[in-house]
């Protein structure tokens, strides 16, 4: 059998890659996708532990995460559309009106 550690390590690696993407990409939509990647990594960890402990509670939680991710994606993309129309660019560095 696959040791649980492997799954969790993979989850950590994916999470890290998600962070890298989040920090380095300049397109708003791509950054959003990096967030989805991170959520997926966490899902993997949940399922892994759920299987290791023999309880299905982790998988229920995964379902909730997916639901929330869906809702978040819907609203978030709506905001992205508005922002993009407003600033006429998809570059996150143009969203800088908070500059003091």
């Amino acid at each position: 059998m696959v040791p649980t550690n492997y799954y969790v390590l993979l989850s950590a690696i994916l999470f890290g890659l998600g962070i890298v993407a989040f920090v380095f990409k300049r397109n708003i939509i791509t950054i959003f996708m990096a967030i989805e990647l991170m959520l997926n990594a966490v899902n993997l960890a949940f399922v892994a532990f759920s299987q290791a402990l023999g309880k299905p509670d982790g998988e229920v939680f995964v379902l909730f995460v997916i639901i929330v991710a869906a809702a978040e994606a819907a609203v978030g993309l709506g905001i992205i559309i508005l922002t993009a129309r407003n600033r006429r660019s998809l570059n996150v560095e143009n969203v800088n009106l908070l500059k003091l």
């Binding site: 990409k25 300049r26 397109n27 939509i29 791509t30 959003f32 996708m33 989805e36 997926n40 997916i66 991710a69 869906a70 994606a73 819907a74 993309l77 992205i80 559309i81 993009a84 998809l90 570059n91 560095e93």
Partner: peptide
């Protein structure tokens, strides 16, 4: 859900906004 709905949503938005290649800022 994830692959069939959310990612499709992403692709719709990308196409809607006519996203191009990333700038190098």
């Amino acid at each position: 859900v994830y692959g069939g709905a959310i990612m499709v949503l992403f692709i719709f938005v990308i196409m809607l906004l006519n996203a191009g290649e990333e700038e190098r800022t």
